[in-house]
């Protein structure tokens, strides 16, 4: 039994999961049972897939040993590209493809610059954060076009489905993509290459892994996931604003770290990133239900986030220190 507990305590994503459950129980109790009711879940499950998709991309990239701070800007650039093109008469399929092409291009540029000039991705993507945000404003001329929802199959992305209309289609997309990326990371050679590249780059190179291509692929996947998440949000709220996604990059990095992804690369799981993103959303939502005063709101969210990370680290240490018979 102790052996099992030790194994699980050392799995960072499972420790985060324990904390997530603890917070859910706390908020459910504090809100008098409202936290888990259908209406609140429906609201939370609307925003969660969007944040979690960005977190999945960032987690993958961090496991590969790189950062992407431009995801918040790409989150806005993709739907803005689509909306602007649609106002110029482009059909949805072409406009959305062009949006994804822009995301892929941003990821490609991030990756190429990072690798070709051996610049920390932190710096490259910080630059891209500003450039992509600026492009979002420039292509909209400052006045975002209205989404032509009549020409967009919104049902495919955001309509309510499932028992009690609890989920949106975006949640199903999120689950599908999470499974695909998990399979990619856990069950394919590419996944091993990603971990090896992020874990110890010289050794990965020495064993013949195409580390440059692996990193570039991760940058592209990360940018495209951010763009898709932006598309989902813009369709859900029916608007594209140039300011959407501001600050999302920090949330995504925080989600990955809370879920146990190492800042140094090589270690982490997609499940961890998802749990981290869920934890952040649960804290935000739970704080509202707890009727925290607005002046203290950010303090409370920040404090609980730190508590989650400290609790995570503490439980992991307890797991490591736990002695079991061999």
């Amino acid at each position: 039994m102790r052996r099992i507990i030790k194994i699980y305590l050392q799995k960072p994503e499972l420790v985060a999961l324990v904390l997530l459950f603890a917070l859910i129980v706390l908020f459910q109790w504090q809100s008098g049972g409202i936290f888990l009711n259908a209406n609140n879940m429906r609201g939370m499950l609307g925003l969660l897939p969007e944040v979690a998709l960005v977190a999945i991309g960032v987690t993958l990239l961090m496991i590969c040993g790189e950062f992407d701070l431009s995801v918040g800007s790409v989150f806005a650039l993709m739907p803005m590209t689509m909306a602007v093109l649609m106002t110029q008469g482009w059909p949805f399929t072409l406009a959305v493809s062009a949006g994804f092409a822009v995301c892929a291009l941003v990821g490609l540029i991030n990756g190429m610059l990072t690798i070709r000039f051996v610049i920390p991705s932190f710096i490259v993507t910080l630059g891209m954060l500003f450039m992509a945000r600026s492009l979002t404003v420039v292509i909209s001329g400052g006045f975002p076009p209205r989404l032509q929802t009549a020409e967009i199959p919104t049902w495919l992305f955001v309509s309510f489905v499932g028992p009690g209309q609890l989920f949106r289609m975006s949640f199903l997309w999120f689950v599908l993509i999470a499974v695909l990326v998990w399979v990619l990371l856990a069950k394919t050679n590419f996944g091993n290459w990603v971990r090896a590249t992020g874990g110890f780059l010289p050794a990965a190179r020495a064993t013949g892994i195409p580390t440059a291509r692996v990193k570039i692929a991760c940058f592209v996947i990360c940018a495209m996931l951010a763009g898709f998440a932006g598309l989902l949000q813009s369709l859900r709220i029916g608007s594209v604003l140039p300011s959407m996604g501001e600050g999302l990059e920090l949330q995504a990095v925080a989600a990955a770290v809370i879920g146990g992804t190492a800042l140094t690369g090589g270690i982490g799981t997609i499940l961890g990133g998802i749990i981290g993103a869920t934890l952040i959303r649960v804290i935000d939502n739970g704080m509202v239900l707890s009727r925290i005063d607005s002046n203290w709101f950010k303090f409370a969210v920040g404090g609980l986030t730190i508590l989650a990370v400290v609790g995570n680290a503490w439980l992991r240490k307890r797991g490591r220190d736990m002695k079991v018979e061999t």
Binding site: G43, M44, G46, L47, E50, Q233, R236, I237, S239, L241, S243, M244, E246, R281, D284, N285, V288
Partner: peptide, 8 residues
């Protein structure tokens, strides 16, 4: 942010 305000 529209999404955050909607959620909260």
């Amino acid at each position: 942010d529209l999404a955050i305000t909607a959620d909260r």
